[in-house]
Nucleic acid binder design. Structure first.
Lengths: 219, 219
DNA sequence: TGACTATTCAAGTAATCAATTGAATAATAT
DNA sequence: ATATTATTCAATTGATTACTTGAATAGTCA
């Protein structure tokens, strides 16, 4: 019976290990990139702007906590999210931080919300409206990420190319843009750009990982 | 535009703060007790078996991270969960740990699952069967926790009193027991005890916090 | 084979964190 | 007022963590 107390402690310690693995901005950023698809250490170091050795150590820590998996192919080690439940965990973390930390609210309000006064489009709304052919779904992430999976039917124009390739978007239809996650700036910027050109545009609520995690169609 | 990069980093740092607050077994245990209802520092120190000063510091950290709130009444400071989203976060953490850390699986298998070979009863199943009056819902937590909220219709017999008060349970009906959370040992022990007495008994999937968080009726 | 590359490891420093102790607050009770 | 109680604060110790640097592995390519 007193063994059960120590089991409880041991379980909490395991949960704490997982939380500890998430308790660093660099690792959260690594996880966000990994949520788009698998990546090598070097690519991740590049994306996050940290040194390769540092990225390697952070990734190792994520591996130990069971948040990511790795696979060696030739001289490259490819890391990937262990599980879709990790996406759920990251979203829960975001939700709690957003509703209870005023600092987060302030950052979001100041730097993101001002660009986008409209409510984001929910998964359900996008699904039904795109079935009726009423919207264009726009993926503004880099092509590599698009190729590893995107909202079924979405077209890919990276944010950097948007000005130049804006004609590829059907006129007269609302555009729903998305990128990596709920606070991914690319989608905010794309929406602002499109509106400046007189187009109707809104953001999707959440990015590709959330869409996939909801079990919705990915191509 | 480069300001957006630093905003992104700042956001991840805020999320990391929340994760860091969860990254200690003592704080997770405090959160589990707080999920049952509000508690004073001394009571929490007692429940978790840590010193008052230590509990105070951990609680302060949870407060800074926005996971709990506090309210001063007389000489007592009452802490409580900031939000039901914290319950979601804790459950996500559990889920990830359970599916990706073999150590957790092992602990659960060895110390809990052996006592309970049957699947737990889902929220939906309990709801429909208890509406038809087919089950007795048993809350095995201490009366103080029961009084702060329990599954609507549940009767309260703390585990310690179960042997003595087993006659209070209607005969010939299945009993569904629950306590503080998914791994709360009280419910496992109660089910084992009831089965030893020849009664039909199963565990509820999750404890009161999960039930409440699912928006189900609490009295 | 030898040069090269991606990744990991090991060592060191600075920073952060957990827990203890004893003192400081602030409310209540006598 | 004085004593008592619940909680927090401050200072300390030992342990853990982050990041850098340079070396070690282990695979590829010429």
């Amino acid at each position: 019976m007193s063994k059960n107390i120590s089991v409880k402690k041991a379980l909490f310690e395991q949960f704490a290990q997982v939380a500890k693995a998430m308790a660093h901005a660099n690792r959260l950023e690594l996880l966000e990139f990994l949520a788009q698809g698998e990546r090598t250490v070097e690519v991740l170091a590049d994306l996050t702007g940290i040194s390769v050795a540092n990225a390697s150590q952070h990734l190792r820590q994520l591996l130990r906590a069971g948040l990511v998996g790795s696979r060696k192919e030739g001289q490259y080690v490819h890391y990937s999210l262990a599980d879709l439940s990790v996406v759920t965990l990251m979203d829960s973390l975001r939700t709690v931080a957003e509703s209870n930390l005023s600092e987060v609210d302030h950052l979001v309000d100041t730097y993101l919300k001002t660009k986008d006064s409209l409510e984001p489009v929910s998964h359900e709304e996008l699904l039904s409206r795109s079935r009726e052919g009423l919207v264009t779904v726009l993926d503004v992430r880099p092509p590599e990420e698009y190729e590893q999976g995107h909202v079924d039917g979405a077209i890919n124009i990276p944010l950097a190319d948007l000005k130049r390739r804006i004609d590829e978007l059907p006129r007269g239809q609302e555009v729903v843009a998305y990128c990596r996650g709920p606070y991914c700036v690319l989608a905010y910027d794309a929406v602002a750009e499109l509106r400046a050109r007189g187009m109707e545009a809104r953001r999707l609520d959440g990015g590709l990982p959330e869409w996939r995690n909801a079990g919705l169609p990915v191509a």
